[in-house]
Design a binder for these strands. Structure first.
Lengths: 345, 345
DNA sequence: CTGTTAGCGCGTTCAA
DNA sequence: TTGAACGCGCTAACAG
């Protein structure tokens, strides 16, 4: 059956709920209930209403719906940066899942700035989002208060709370500390003894990887403060090269370097080629996140594969559950990580 | 002065326009006009209203505003992929500019699929966006019709129409054909004679670069169909390596390869290192877009620097002009490009 | 220049 | 289970 031409008498020319009601011979409220699948409505009616609305080409108006119900079809997502592929992958996966469920994604970029995050959240809450996705568990008090008082269901991405902390928070991710320790132990098992940790950006997750590395080295009795190379600048290939040169110059006895992110490690590999430093025979290099290109490097880069796409999707799924008013089977989902051993170690 | 506690008598507890009107002793419409900076309002009043609204902590409700005015504070942006840094840069810049002007960005990912683009546009138009940003000038008829009939101001990204075509369309970008030709002529000027063109994804902009390359070679009397290596698969470092190996095996006489995107070229450089093929002495390699890492390769990669961030920002600016009901000084803005000569050629 | 009136399109009471 | 009435918060058309 073809959609009929617009029979509305509205000034805007839109087909409205009332148009459907009139055509179906029922009240607007019934149409509203039927179309939203609210129970307590005659199955026969719901079928008739559905048919008529399809025939008329009726589509609900999100603004009207938001105004009346105090809840929009938006889901707000807060990520630190768009210049890090990690977060883009998260965004991509979450957005795809949410759209399939009929939600629009409102993205906010915090630039790792707590007060910008707060401001963004404030703006987004004005749109009365149906749900909220935020990166990490670390937020300033005002932000936490906003999230709590808004009553909007919220899922945290990437990170899992330390045991006994934030137990009520919904999150999907993996334990960054464990991942840092795991890679370090892997390097130890390969026989490396002077393992440096080189990091940039220094966001909370990077710091947790640092702690993991520290713990693992301390357990092995191999920790030394001079093995830490921390740089607060944004992460990049170029910076990786710079860090690599610094470390090789100032600590030539280092036999392995664990970079907190693959872009740094890739930059280090390129610098090694340039400087004629043999990897891994002279020094081993490991990265984190297993980003695009790491398997194409020379030598190919050992890294920690993190399931960012799956995190984005699973977090969106958990949020969908919460938005339906249900509880997920567990408030915390650990998607773990995987050591990818390649030629650079 | 501190914001007063909420004086609203509304069920929702929200401070509304009427609350401000009451407190200021004027009518709601006056408040509405004053706050939106509509002229034809007494300067004294607008000051009083502003003061009162700030004191009460009044914030307009976007949903109510959208319902009443038939226009939301959303701007929809359609891009092909989130897995290509090019489009993410575009998104980042546009989003930043738009947010500063008080607009929320609704992003849609088309996956280079014309019907998905159409469907996304349909969904987004339901939200009555104040403006529209789309990638490229190529859209299916239904999409073009939607854009036209919606009356929503629209700016096209990245591409400029061929002379005499789409003259009315608003766009910000550069001439892809010219860029392709410019790099080819640059290679010719360096003495290369058998210049292959290797491409993936094959979207309309890639094809235009191809035409530019073709024209330049034909002018020089050096064109041969066997120099074209087109692969419809998505672009990636790995694919660049594969293409490079193919070309070197099947056309060993090629002395330069122009890749349609830097990720392919970077992959080719890595493959060359792996295979022990000297770049540029045995074969030169050039890329396109000057993506992250191209200046860190070994050898560093010659490329075409494209002003994607500036395109995103300028397009957003042009859209802001259109949304104000004004006309930009010119409907088409050419931001050009730049050949970046590095070691690989 | 300002106020009054009338919606925008829908969800949500409450009665029936 | 259904319908009537009302309200969500704001803009727009018109009158003054």
């Amino acid at each position: 059956m073809q959609p009929l031409p617009n029979k509305s008498h509205r000034a805007t020319g839109r087909v409205t709920l009332s148009d459907v009601a009139r055509a179906a011979g029922v009240s607007p409220s019934t149409v509203s209930r039927a179309l939203r699948g609210e129970r307590a409505v005659d199955p026969a009616l719901i079928e008739r209403v559905t048919a008529v609305s399809r025939m008329l080409g009726y589509v609900p108006d999100p603004a009207a719906r938001a105004l009346a119900s105090q809840r929009s079809d938006h889901v707000a997502i807060l990520i630190p940066l768009l210049s890090n592929a990690l977060f883009v992958d998260l965004l991509d996966a979450a957005q795809t899942t949410l759209r399939a469920a009929g939600y629009q994604t409102l993205m906010g970029v915090t630039h790792y700035d707590a007060s910008e995050e707060e401001q963004l959240l404030r703006e987004q809450l004005l749109h009365r989002p149906a749900g909220l996705l935020v990166t990490g568990l670390d937020h300033n008090p005002a932000t936490r208060k906003l999230m709590a008082s808004s009553q909007v269901p919220c899922v945290h991405l990437m990170d899992l709370p330390a045991i006994g902390q934030h137990d009520e928070a919904h999150c999907v991710g993996f334990r960054q500390t464990d991942a840092g320790a795991a890679m370090t132990r892997h390097l130890l098992s390969k026989g490396y003894r002077r393992i440096a940790f080189a990091a940039a950006q220094l966001d909370p997750r990077v710091m947790q990887r640092l702690y993991g590395w520290r713990n693992a080295l301390q357990e092995a009795g191999l920790y030394e403060p001079t093995l830490e190379w921390l740089n607060p600048a944004p992460s990049s290939l170029a910076l990786g090269g710079v860090l690599f040169e610094q470390i090789m110059q100032q600590s030539p006895s280092v036999d392995a370097i664990f970079f907190c992110n693959d872009d740094l490690a890739q930059g280090a590999l390129m610098a090694a080629l340039r400087l004629g430093i043999a990897v891994p025979s002279q020094v081993a290099i490991a990265g984190f996140n297993d980003l695009t290109g790491s398997d194409q490097m020379l030598p190919t880069l050992t890294s920690v594969r993190t399931p960012r796409a799956r995190i984005g999707e699973a977090a969106a799924q958990m949020l969908l559950t919460l938005m339906r008013g249900e509880e997920p089977s567990s408030p915390q989902l650990d998607l773990s990580f995987e050591i990818v051993q390649r030629q650079s170690t």
